Amino acid sequence: MLEGKVKWFNSEKGFGFIEVEGQDDVFVHFSAIQGEGFKTLEEGQAVSFEIVEGNRGPQAANVTKEA
């Protein structure tokens, strides 16, 4: 699992990017966010995740919000 911070997330469109120190930003789709209820992320929020190869390159999977 990697750790990063949410760079930005558009809850209307359901996607955004996660910043990872020393690496390129990683695309995140709302469907990759773990948990119940409305799936969104806040700018600057700490998250842990895995990287998988998507249709358009690397993207986040199994995203969990850090306490």
Score class of each variant (00 low, 15 high):
residue 1 M to F: 10
residue 1 M to C: 07
residue 1 M to W: 09
residue 1 M to E: 06
residue 1 M to P: 04
residue 2 L to G: 06
residue 2 L to E: 09
residue 2 L to F: 13
residue 2 L to N: 11
residue 3 E to Y: 14
residue 3 E to N: 13
residue 3 E to R: 13
residue 3 E to L: 14
residue 3 E to W: 11
residue 3 E to A: 12
residue 4 G to H: 01
residue 4 G to D: 01
residue 4 G to F: 00
residue 4 G to A: 03
residue 4 G to Q: 03
residue 4 G to Y: 00
residue 4 G to T: 01
residue 5 K to V: 09
residue 5 K to G: 02
residue 5 K to C: 11
residue 5 K to F: 10
residue 5 K to M: 09
residue 5 K to W: 07
residue 5 K to P: 00
residue 5 K to I: 10
residue 5 K to D: 02
residue 6 V to P: 00
residue 6 V to L: 03
residue 6 V to C: 08
residue 6 V to M: 04
residue 6 V to W: 00
residue 6 V to D: 01
residue 6 V to H: 01
residue 6 V to Y: 00
residue 7 K to S: 08
residue 7 K to C: 06
residue 7 K to I: 08
residue 7 K to E: 03
residue 8 W to H: 06
residue 8 W to M: 09
residue 8 W to Q: 06
residue 8 W to C: 09
residue 8 W to T: 08
residue 8 W to S: 09
residue 8 W to E: 05
residue 8 W to R: 07
residue 9 F to V: 06
residue 9 F to I: 04
residue 9 F to T: 03
residue 9 F to C: 03
residue 9 F to L: 03
residue 10 N to M: 04
residue 10 N to D: 11
residue 10 N to V: 03
residue 10 N to T: 06
residue 10 N to R: 07
residue 11 S to M: 07
residue 11 S to I: 14
residue 11 S to T: 14
residue 11 S to G: 07
residue 11 S to E: 08
residue 11 S to F: 07
residue 11 S to A: 15
residue 12 E to M: 15
residue 12 E to Y: 15
residue 12 E to L: 15
residue 12 E to N: 15
residue 12 E to A: 15
residue 13 K to T: 07
residue 13 K to H: 09
residue 13 K to M: 09
residue 13 K to Y: 09
residue 13 K to A: 08
residue 13 K to V: 06
residue 13 K to L: 09
residue 13 K to S: 06
residue 13 K to N: 05
residue 14 G to Q: 04
residue 14 G to L: 02
residue 14 G to W: 00
residue 14 G to E: 03
residue 14 G to I: 01
residue 14 G to T: 02
residue 14 G to M: 03
residue 14 G to D: 02
residue 14 G to F: 02
residue 14 G to A: 03
residue 15 F to A: 04
residue 15 F to S: 04
residue 15 F to V: 07
residue 15 F to L: 05
residue 15 F to G: 03
residue 15 F to N: 03
residue 16 G to C: 03
residue 16 G to D: 01
residue 16 G to P: 00
residue 16 G to A: 02
residue 17 F to D: 02
residue 17 F to Y: 08
residue 17 F to K: 10
residue 17 F to C: 06
residue 18 I to N: 02
residue 18 I to Q: 00
residue 18 I to A: 01
residue 18 I to D: 02
residue 18 I to E: 02
residue 18 I to W: 00
residue 19 E to T: 12
residue 19 E to F: 06
residue 19 E to L: 09
residue 19 E to M: 14
residue 20 V to P: 03
residue 20 V to D: 02
residue 21 E to T: 14
residue 21 E to K: 13
residue 21 E to H: 10
residue 21 E to L: 09
residue 21 E to G: 09
residue 21 E to R: 11
residue 21 E to N: 15
residue 21 E to S: 12
residue 21 E to C: 13
residue 22 G to F: 05
residue 22 G to P: 02
residue 22 G to N: 10
residue 22 G to V: 00
residue 22 G to E: 10
residue 22 G to S: 09
residue 22 G to K: 09
residue 23 Q to G: 13
residue 23 Q to T: 10
residue 23 Q to N: 14
residue 23 Q to R: 13
residue 23 Q to D: 07
residue 23 Q to E: 10
residue 23 Q to P: 03
residue 24 D to R: 14
residue 24 D to M: 09
residue 24 D to N: 14
residue 24 D to I: 05
residue 24 D to Q: 12
residue 25 D to W: 00
residue 25 D to S: 05
residue 25 D to L: 03
residue 25 D to H: 04
residue 25 D to K: 02
residue 25 D to T: 03
residue 26 V to K: 03
residue 26 V to T: 06
residue 26 V to G: 02
residue 26 V to Q: 03
residue 26 V to S: 03
residue 26 V to H: 02
residue 27 F to R: 05
residue 27 F to Y: 09
residue 27 F to D: 02
residue 27 F to W: 08
residue 27 F to I: 04
residue 27 F to Q: 05
residue 28 V to K: 01
residue 28 V to H: 03
residue 28 V to D: 01
residue 28 V to L: 05
residue 29 H to I: 01
residue 29 H to Y: 02
residue 29 H to D: 05
residue 29 H to R: 04
residue 29 H to G: 03
residue 29 H to T: 04
residue 29 H to K: 05
residue 29 H to L: 01
residue 30 F to R: 13
residue 30 F to S: 11
residue 30 F to E: 09
residue 30 F to P: 03
residue 30 F to N: 07
residue 30 F to H: 10
residue 31 S to N: 08
residue 31 S to F: 01
residue 31 S to H: 09
residue 31 S to W: 02
residue 31 S to Q: 05
residue 31 S to T: 13
residue 32 A to F: 02
residue 32 A to K: 08
residue 32 A to Q: 13
residue 32 A to V: 05
residue 33 I to T: 03
residue 33 I to Q: 03
residue 33 I to S: 02
residue 33 I to E: 03
residue 33 I to L: 09
residue 33 I to A: 03
residue 33 I to P: 02
residue 34 Q to T: 09
residue 34 Q to W: 05
residue 34 Q to C: 15
residue 34 Q to D: 09
residue 34 Q to R: 11
residue 34 Q to Y: 05
residue 34 Q to L: 13
residue 34 Q to M: 13
residue 35 G to Y: 04
residue 35 G to N: 07
residue 35 G to V: 07
residue 35 G to W: 06
residue 35 G to F: 03
residue 35 G to K: 05
residue 36 E to N: 15
residue 36 E to I: 08
residue 36 E to W: 07
residue 36 E to G: 14
residue 36 E to P: 14
residue 37 G to Y: 05
residue 37 G to D: 07
residue 37 G to M: 05
residue 37 G to A: 08
residue 37 G to F: 05
residue 37 G to L: 05
residue 37 G to C: 06
residue 37 G to V: 05
residue 37 G to I: 04
residue 37 G to Q: 08
residue 38 F to K: 12
residue 38 F to A: 12
residue 38 F to T: 10
residue 38 F to D: 10
residue 38 F to V: 11
residue 38 F to H: 10
residue 38 F to Y: 09
residue 39 K to Y: 04
residue 39 K to L: 09
residue 39 K to W: 04
residue 39 K to G: 07
residue 39 K to N: 07
residue 39 K to H: 05
residue 39 K to C: 07
residue 40 T to I: 10
residue 40 T to F: 13
residue 40 T to D: 11
residue 40 T to H: 10
residue 40 T to M: 10
residue 40 T to N: 10
residue 40 T to A: 10
residue 41 L to W: 03
residue 41 L to I: 09
residue 41 L to G: 02
residue 41 L to F: 04
residue 41 L to A: 03
residue 41 L to T: 02
residue 41 L to C: 04
residue 42 E to Y: 15
residue 42 E to F: 11
residue 42 E to S: 15
residue 42 E to R: 14
residue 42 E to H: 10
residue 42 E to W: 10
residue 42 E to Q: 15
residue 42 E to I: 11
residue 43 E to V: 15
residue 43 E to K: 15
residue 43 E to Y: 13
residue 43 E to D: 10
residue 43 E to M: 13
residue 43 E to S: 15
residue 44 G to F: 02
residue 44 G to I: 00
residue 44 G to M: 04
residue 44 G to E: 08
residue 45 Q to K: 06
residue 45 Q to S: 09
residue 45 Q to C: 08
residue 45 Q to Y: 02
residue 45 Q to F: 03
residue 45 Q to P: 00
residue 45 Q to T: 10
residue 46 A to S: 14
residue 46 A to E: 12
residue 46 A to D: 09
residue 46 A to F: 13
residue 46 A to H: 13
residue 47 V to I: 06
residue 47 V to Y: 00
residue 47 V to S: 00
residue 47 V to T: 02
residue 47 V to E: 00
residue 48 S to I: 13
residue 48 S to G: 08
residue 48 S to P: 01
residue 48 S to H: 11
residue 48 S to Y: 11
residue 48 S to D: 07
residue 48 S to A: 13
residue 48 S to F: 13
residue 49 F to T: 02
residue 49 F to E: 02
residue 49 F to V: 03
residue 49 F to K: 03
residue 49 F to D: 01
residue 49 F to R: 01
residue 49 F to P: 01
residue 49 F to I: 02
residue 50 E to S: 14
residue 50 E to K: 13
residue 50 E to A: 11
residue 50 E to P: 00
residue 50 E to D: 12
residue 50 E to C: 10
residue 50 E to I: 11
residue 50 E to T: 14
residue 50 E to L: 08
residue 51 I to G: 02
residue 51 I to V: 12
residue 51 I to D: 02
residue 51 I to F: 07
residue 51 I to Y: 07
residue 52 V to Q: 12
residue 52 V to E: 10
residue 52 V to F: 08
residue 52 V to R: 11
residue 52 V to C: 12
residue 52 V to D: 06
residue 52 V to T: 13
residue 53 E to H: 10
residue 53 E to P: 07
residue 53 E to L: 11
residue 53 E to V: 14
residue 53 E to T: 13
residue 53 E to N: 10
residue 54 G to N: 10
residue 54 G to W: 04
residue 54 G to L: 05
residue 54 G to Y: 06
residue 54 G to M: 04
residue 54 G to T: 14
residue 54 G to V: 04
residue 54 G to S: 11
residue 55 N to K: 15
residue 55 N to I: 10
residue 55 N to P: 14
residue 55 N to R: 15
residue 55 N to L: 14
residue 55 N to G: 13
residue 55 N to Q: 14
residue 56 R to D: 04
residue 56 R to M: 08
residue 56 R to G: 08
residue 56 R to A: 07
residue 56 R to Q: 09
residue 56 R to H: 08
residue 56 R to N: 07
residue 56 R to F: 05
residue 56 R to V: 08
residue 56 R to I: 04
residue 57 G to F: 05
residue 57 G to M: 05
residue 57 G to K: 05
residue 57 G to W: 05
residue 57 G to L: 04
residue 57 G to E: 03
residue 57 G to T: 04
residue 57 G to H: 05
residue 57 G to I: 04
residue 57 G to R: 07
residue 58 P to F: 11
residue 58 P to D: 05
residue 58 P to I: 11
residue 58 P to H: 08
residue 58 P to W: 13
residue 58 P to R: 14
residue 58 P to L: 13
residue 58 P to Y: 11
residue 59 Q to V: 14
residue 59 Q to I: 13
residue 59 Q to L: 12
residue 59 Q to N: 04
residue 59 Q to S: 08
residue 59 Q to G: 04
residue 60 A to S: 03
residue 60 A to Q: 00
residue 60 A to C: 05
residue 60 A to E: 02
residue 60 A to D: 00
residue 61 A to N: 08
residue 61 A to I: 12
residue 61 A to S: 12
residue 61 A to M: 09
residue 61 A to H: 14
residue 62 N to R: 12
residue 62 N to K: 13
residue 62 N to M: 11
residue 63 V to Y: 00
residue 63 V to R: 01
residue 63 V to A: 02
residue 63 V to C: 05
residue 63 V to K: 00
residue 64 T to Q: 13
residue 64 T to G: 07
residue 64 T to C: 11
residue 64 T to E: 08
residue 64 T to R: 14
residue 65 K to M: 11
residue 65 K to L: 12
residue 65 K to S: 12
residue 65 K to A: 09
residue 65 K to R: 13
residue 66 E to A: 12
residue 66 E to K: 14
residue 66 E to Y: 11
residue 66 E to C: 14
residue 66 E to F: 13
residue 66 E to M: 14
residue 67 A to W: 08
residue 67 A to C: 13
residue 67 A to I: 08
residue 67 A to P: 07
residue 67 A to V: 15
